[in-house]
Amino acid sequence: MNRYLMIDFTKCTGCGLCQMVCAINKTRQCDPSLARIKIWREETRGVFIPMTCQQCVEPSCASACLMNVITKDPLTGVTIRKLDNCIGCRACQMACPFEACTYDHLLEVVVNCDHCGGDPECVKICPTGALQYLHLKESLDCRRDAEALRRTAFYGEERSQG
């Protein structure tokens, strides 16, 4: 797999633009429920978690699929679907722990994020940089830097208190 859709929950404000642009781009409908990306909201604690297909290496949706329509693209590593054969039974939706399968009620099939073929619209519109589309190395760097920053901030705080 060469590129990842990185999600930084801490930066998400829950504005929902990613959902809107995804729905419009994929289905021409202004209906966030059709978006391939979803934001799980917990307003009481101010936590917003954008969830989309994690492009698992061994996807549980693929093993649950009754029609064997879900496969991994050998080149990009993206989880792809042959939608012609999808009967919309939703078994994949129930098997995905990330709630990343979306039931497209217009086409009556279940779909997932396909990274817009390598140029995700949600990343382009995200105003806070919570969504990023990175190469593997960049994404690892990104995670390492974020973790380093978090730890230094944490220990710095402890030291100043102690």
Partner: peptide, 16 residues
Amino acid sequence: DPDLMLKATWYLPARQ
């Protein structure tokens, strides 16, 4: 725990 939860974000749908 807010920190643990961000490590296991997929718990949120189950919680809802």
